[in-house]
C-alpha cells in the first residue's frame, strides 16, 4: 500500500501524455543527431533575411559604422530563444571580427551580458583577431523595460549603427527600437518568439525571422551539423503533427456526421 502511494506521488499521471510525447521527441532528436550522421548531409531551404546577414555586416564595414545586436528585454538566459540568439551572435561576431567592424551589444540582463562576452570573445579568437574584441561594447544597460528601451534608443540615435539585429524575446520595446532604427536608415534584421511583437517587426524591419525560423537560422548560418540535425528533427515532428491533426479531424467529422458525441481522444 505504501509502495503504491509512493509510486503515485513519484509520477504525476496527469502528465503521462506529455512524458510520452517528450520521450518520442527526444528519440527523434537523438536519431537525427547521432544515427543519421553518416547519411547525406541535411540542407535547409532558403530563409528570407538570412542571406542579408552578411550584407548587413558588410554595409556596416563599408560605412565605418557599428553594428548593433540586442536580444530584447523579454528573455533570460534560461530561455531557448536566447540560446538560439547567442548562436547567431556567434556567427555575426566572427564576421565583424574578420571585417573589423564594431559590434555593440546592449542587454537588460547581466547574465546574458556575461554569456555574450564569452561568445563574442571566443568568436573573435576563432576569426583570428582576438585583439579586436572590446569587452565594453557588450554592456548591461538597465533591467527596467523602458530604461533598457531608452538606453538602446540612445545608442542607436547617437552611434547610428548601419545595421541592427533585433533577435531574441521582445516585448513592448520592440517597436520603439525598430522605429528608431528606421529613422537612422539602418538595415534591420529582426526575429522573435513573441507572437505579438512579430507584427511590429514585420511592418518596421527589413527582414523578420518568424518564431521557429530564429531557431533554424543559427543552423543555416553556421552550417553546424548538430543544429541542422535538430531542424530536421523539428520537420519530422511537424509531419507527425500534420498526420495527427488530419486523423483527428477525420475522426471528429465522422463522429459528428454519425450523431455520436465527440470522444475528444485527441485532447490530452
Amino acid at each position: 500500500m505504501d509502495l503504491i502511494i509512493l509510486t503515485q506521488s513519484l509520477f504525476n499521471t496527469d502528465r503521462m501524455a506529455t512524458f510520452l510525447i517528450s520521450l518520442i521527441a527526444i528519440a527523434i532528436v537523438l536519431y537525427t543527431t547521432y544515427f543519421r550522421k553518416n547519411k547525406k548531409p541535411f540542407t535547409i531551404r532558403k530563409i528570407n533575411g538570412l542571406q542579408a546577414v552578411e550584407d548587413a555586416i558588410g554595409r556596416a564595414t563599408e560605412m565605418a559604422r557599428p553594428l548593433l545586436y540586442t536580444p530584447g528585454w523579454g528573455g533570460d538566459i534560461q530561455r531557448p530563444t536566447t540560446i538560439a540568439s547567442m548562436n547567431i551572435l556567434s556567427f555575426v561576431a566572427e564576421k565583424t571580427a574578420q571585417y573589423d567592424c564594431d559590434l555593440v551589444f546592449p542587454t537588460h540582463d547581466p547574465i546574458i551580458m556575461s554569456v555574450a562576452q564569452e561568445v563574442v570573445k571566443e568568436s573573435y579568437s576563432r576569426a583570428g583577431y582576438p585583439d579586436r574584441y572590446k569587452e565594453d561594447n557588450i554592456s548591461y544597460v538597465s533591467s527596467s523595460q523602458f530604461g533598457y528601451a531608452a538606453a538602446v534608443d540612445g545608442i542607436i540615435s547617437r552611434t547610428k549603427p548601419a545595421s541592427i539585429f533585433l533577435l531574441g524575446t521582445f516585448e513592448a520595446e520592440s517597436l520603439i527600437l525598430a522605429e528608431t532604427g528606421t529613422s537612422i536608415n539602418a538595415i534591420q534584421i529582426a526575429g522573435t518568439d513573441s507572437t505579438i511583437q512579430l507584427s511590429f517587426f514585420i511592418v518596421a524591419c527589413d527582414y523578420t525571422l518568424i518564431g521557429e525560423e530564429l531557431f533554424a537560422a543559427s543552423g543555416y548560418l553556421s552550417g553546424n551539423k548538430s543544429i541542422l540535425a535538430s531542424v530536421q528533427a523539428q520537420d519530422i515532428m511537424k509531419i507527425m503533427i500534420a498526420v495527427f491533426i488530419v486523423t483527428a479531424v477525420i475522426w471528429a467529422t465522422v463522429e459528428s456526421l454519425s450523431g455520436t458525441p465527440l470522444s475528444y481522444w485527441w485532447k490530452f
Binding site: 532528436v29 530561455r79 540560446i83 518568439d193 518564431g211 535538430s230 528533427a233 523539428q234 511537424k238
Partner: peptide, 18 residues
C-alpha cells in the same frame, strides 16, 4: 507559430542538455 516555437525550443534545449 507557437507549435514551431515549441519544437525549436525543445530541440535547442535538448542540444544544451546533451
Amino acid at each position: 507559430i507557437l507549435i514551431g516555437i515549441g519544437l525549436g525550443s525543445l530541440t535547442t534545449s535538448m542540444r544544451v542538455i546533451l
